[in-house]
């Protein structure tokens, strides 16, 4: 019984380890420096909205937010258009070739980002597309497509074959089966895969650092730049930038939790 109490206490402690630093950051976003830079942490203070206002008023932040949205959504869109059909083909036609393809797609994740970032930089410069949203979308679609394929295969595998058979008996061709049957049935699982790929590129840092200079800069870069400016910049502003950057991935929390539940519920069967 005592063990159980200790166990529960440990769980609560772990949850606090996750939530405390984040709540602390959120609080700091509403503090002035005098409340922030105190030897004893301050929990009661008079909130200020100047930090958030400053962050939102910077042209660089606004531009980066726009860039991040355009680049990430487009890359996820490409991942969807190219990745889902490929994942379906791999799921429905299991043979030696598709297994190799599946492994190839996974092995793309083995590539160290630095190994592709340096040459990509030179390539985009030579082509005249360096520091453009287009080049970032193309580069990121490498990530989104491979992740979308990898994570959607189980989703398509979970579509009962009988359902597809029935559709085929009704006279659907293989493409119609994909678009009208497999895709809608697997949709919920696929949303999670796409959400994961969105989070990955939204959070991506190293490629963005090397492949953009100013026009196509993404939000993680601007947040990191702000956080590196030193004490000359009020720390509250940095906290506000961090909060802004973290919101979109956290909005997807429910979707991703669901995706995991579904993935493992399927395993149980």
């Amino acid at each position: 019984m005592i063990a159980r109490v200790i166990g529960k206490a440990t769980l609560v402690f772990c949850a606090a380890c996750v939530l405390m630093p984040l709540l602390w950051t959120l609080m700091n976003a509403f503090k002035v420096n005098a409340d922030l830079l105190t030897p004893v942490p301050k929990f009661v203070f008079e909130p200020t909205f100047d930090n958030i206002a400053y962050v939102l008023s910077r042209r660089s932040v606004f531009g980066a937010l726009y860039n991040s949205l355009i680049i990430c959504l487009s890359a996820v869109g490409i991942g969807l258009v190219l990745g889902l059909p490929a994942a379906y083909a791999i799921a429905r036609y299991p043979n030696r070739i598709t297994r190799e393809i599946q492994f190839f797609v996974l092995s793309l994740r083995f590539l160290p980002p630095v190994a592709i970032a340096i040459p990509f930089m030179v390539i985009w410069l030579n082509l005249g597309f360096y520091d453009t949203r287009l080049s970032m979308i193309v580069t990121y679609s490498l990530i989104t497509t491979s992740i979308a394929i990898w994570l959607s295969i189980p989703g398509f595998q979970s579509v009962p074959k009988e359902v597809e058979e029935a559709a085929r008996v009704d006279g659907y061709g293989p493409y119609a089966v994909f678009f009208r049957v497999a895709l809608p049935v697997a949709m919920k699982a696929l949303m999670g895969a796409l959400a994961f790929s969105f989070v990955l590129v939204w959070n991506e840092f190293m490629l963005a650092l090397m492949l953009t200079a100013s026009n196509a800069k993404t939000l993680p870069l601007v947040a990191s730049e702000m956080s590196q400016q030193g004490l000359n910049v009020p720390w509250g502003i940095l906290n506000a930038a961090v909060v802004l950057l973290s919101i979109p991935p956290l909005l997807l929390l429910g979707l991703l939790g669901n995706f995991l539940n579904r993935a493992f519920a399927q395993k149980r069967r």
Partner: peptide, 9 residues
């Protein structure tokens, strides 16, 4: 939550 947080953050 932690894994969803941008690593920069």
């Amino acid at each position: 939550i932690p894994v969803l947080l941008p690593r920069v953050c």
